[in-house]
Nucleic acid binder design. Structure first.
Length: 600
DNA sequence: CCCCCCCC
């Protein structure tokens, strides 16, 4: 099998002297984990042979470590190097050339072959094949790899007579806090607004940017006076040489960039725009998660997602419970080739300006996964980047799928609350609500129970609400034919009736009070809110009779219980999110399985 | 040195 592949003899010498070799075929004679204090930042060093020479300063970019970890890259493997960078690292004061493999393919696994030829160590005193001959001229390549050629290795980053372009650049993936002499050549793929903060540790302002090169990406942040120095200089999509930043461990909670470190600008930081041809530096890196897989992703994770905007809601406004701030949101339904859909919430200005009417492809880097009522949702935040109809292959493929197939397909909605979408909440008995200590958590507890309406409360069972769709705020009768909604902050000439359901439900084990959404109260009373309101207009006691008809009816109540505060008192509040007729087949099979459990 | 990211 190995005979099929001939090693690219002599290629190592060419590559390490600045030449370009596409798809070089080499043999990996040995792999070694590089000792590092941080186990998250594993690095592997390879001993490579091109059949003629040996080279031991080869590394894998950490993104492809799994090819070693899963055993695919055992000793003697024959590989094709599809993408690489050569670079220089500072090795105890001496510049040392390394080869960083960005992308490779295993052609023959090690166990199916053996060492080929008698390669000898690559001499490192050769004359360069390519000279870095003119000042201010970086060796650039339009191919997938950029080469940075050594031409005298003792130039210091500190030498003010040397323009930064003359220096050697390092791949972003090689940066670490343990080594501070480096220059990166990176594109700014995202730049935040200037934000201010004020907390117990002080106050100030900052902005951050995402930097990207062929090897990887990293976030950089500038604080206080460095904001004034750099904010206007740095523009999105431009390429810069950057050096002398401080490296620290990245907090994964706030960034999903593929880097264990992040950088902070210092007063010594140097930023210089690069005007060379730089098409080899990518625009943005994505690690898209298919929508059906988001079901299993932990809440609060940041992910990259791509989807067609199948539906979009109106702009909604309300006040934040905690801060009282006016919030604006818009909900977008994204669908992808998995034929699953998810709700994405946009906030603030992004929500306001969003136009989804043409069903565009939406790409989000760093969307936050949340949970609502048992379903998963996404939302954008300060560090997410949203792109509409970006010119990337994934977007074109998705467009094609949607226009031909997706548009007429029903998608599984993974944001569906527990009552639909195949997500089953737990069946319980009423006594369990107390006994299991429901509702202690932040999000509350969800369950379903089969119960009988013992008492439907008619007092205060209906109110005049804001006529605006989706607004359920009680209006204040102005006495002049106008009704004021404090939530919308305006007066309307009309209102709508809404039921405010409250009922005591019981089963064999006990009873409890629940409140019901108006839509669900309508199901229990078998009347619309509007009809009940009109009945009350002619007879104030009408709801007593209407409620009486609901007594002793049986339903399945899908509920959420949560501890809530009422004037210094904490009480458990249970809301029936959904009321459904009893499905006897389902209830009985549940009862049978419970009996089986008890027998065992 | 930020890091709140909201609501049903």
């Amino acid at each position: 099998m190995a005979e099929k592949y001939k090693l690219s003899e002599g290629s190592l010498r060419v590559i390490m002297k600045g030449g370009q070799i596409d798809n070089a075929i080499m043999q990996v004679l040995d792999t070694k984990r590089i000792a590092s204090g941080n186990t998250d930042k594993e690095r592997y060093r390879l001993l490579l042979s091109d059949g003629k020479h040996l080279f031991s300063f080869a590394m894998l970019t950490s993104q492809i470590n799994d090819q070693i970890v899963n055993g695919e890259l055992s000793d003697n493997s024959i590989i094709k190097i599809k993408k690489y960078i050569t670079s220089v690292i500072n090795n105890v004061g001496k510049a040392k050339r390394v080869l960083v493999i960005l992308e490779m393919e295993t052609l023959v696994r090690g166990e199916n072959t053996s060492k080929i030829g008698s390669p000898e160590p690559l001499p490192d005193d050769d004359e360069p094949l390519v000279e870095n001959d003119s000042k201010n001229k970086q060796v650039s390549s339009t191919s997938s790899s950029t080469l940075h050629v050594v031409n005298g290795n003792n130039r210091s980053v500190n030498d003010p007579n040397v323009s930064i372009q003359d220096q050697l650049t390092h791949p972003i993936s090689s940066l670490s806090p343990y080594q501070n002499k480096w220059i990166i050549k990176a594109r700014v793929s995202n730049k935040s607004n200037v934000r201010t903060w004020s907390n117990s540790r002080g106050e100030g302002k900052l902005f951050s940017m995402d930097l990207i090169d062929e090897s990887g990406e990293i976030r950089a942040t500038a604080f206080r006076e460095l904001v004034d120095k750099f904010y206007d200089l740095i523009e999105i999509d431009k390429v810069y040489y950057i050096s002398k930043c401080q490296l620290k461990i990245a907090n994964k909670q706030f960034s999903n960039l593929n880097n264990d470190y992040e950088m902070t600008f210092t007063p010594d930081t140097i930023v210089q725009e690069c005007h060379d041809v730089v098409e080899s530096i990518p625009q943005t890196r994505y690690d898209f998660i298919s929508i059906n897989k988001i079901t299993h992703i932990e809440v609060n994770t940041l992910i990259d997602v791509i989807g067609v905007c199948k539906n979009v809601s109106d702009l909604q406004m309300f006040q934040a419970k905690s801060t009282g701030r006016e919030l604006k949101k818009r909900e977008v339904t994204l669908v992808d080739q998995s034929s699953n859909s998810i709700a994405l919430t946009l906030w603030g200005a992004e929500a306001e300006s969003f136009d989804g009417s043409s069903q565009p492809v939406i790409v989000i880097k760093g969307a936050r996964v949340s949970e609502f009522g048992g379903g998963k949702t996404l939302s954008t935040g300060v560090s997410s980047i949203m792109k509409i109809n970006p010119d990337i292959p994934e977007a074109h493929r998705l467009r094609g799928w949607f226009d031909n197939e997706g548009i007429s397909k029903t998608a599984v909605n993974i944001s569906a609350r527990s009552e639909s979408g195949g997500y089953q909440t737990q069946w319980i008995n009423i006594k369990d609500v107390q006994e299991m200590g429901m509702g202690q958590g932040e999000k509350g507890d969800y369950f379903q129970v089969k119960g009988t309406i013992l008492l439907y409360r008619s007092e205060g069972g209906i109110y005049k609400a804001c006529p605006k769709e989706d607004c359920k705020k009680k209006v204040v009768d102005q006495g002049n034919g106008m009704y004021r909604c404090d939530k919308c902050n305006r007066e309307y000439p009309n209102f709508k009736y809404l039921l405010l359901g409250s009922a005591n439900i019981g089963d064999w084990s006990g009873n409890m009070w629940i409140s019901l959404f108006s839509s669900e109260a309508e199901k229990v009373l078998e009347m619309s809110s509007q009809a009940v309101g009109e009945a009350i207009e002619s007879d104030p006691q009408a709801l007593v009779e209407i409620a009486d008809k609901a007594h002793f009816k049986q339903f399945v109540f899908r509920c959420r219980s949560k501890m809530e505060n009422y004037n210094d008192e904490t009480r458990l509040k249970t809301v029936a999110l959904k009321v459904e007729p009893v499905n006897y087949k389902e209830c009985n099979s549940h009862a049978i399985s419970r009996i089986q459990e008890l027998l065992n």
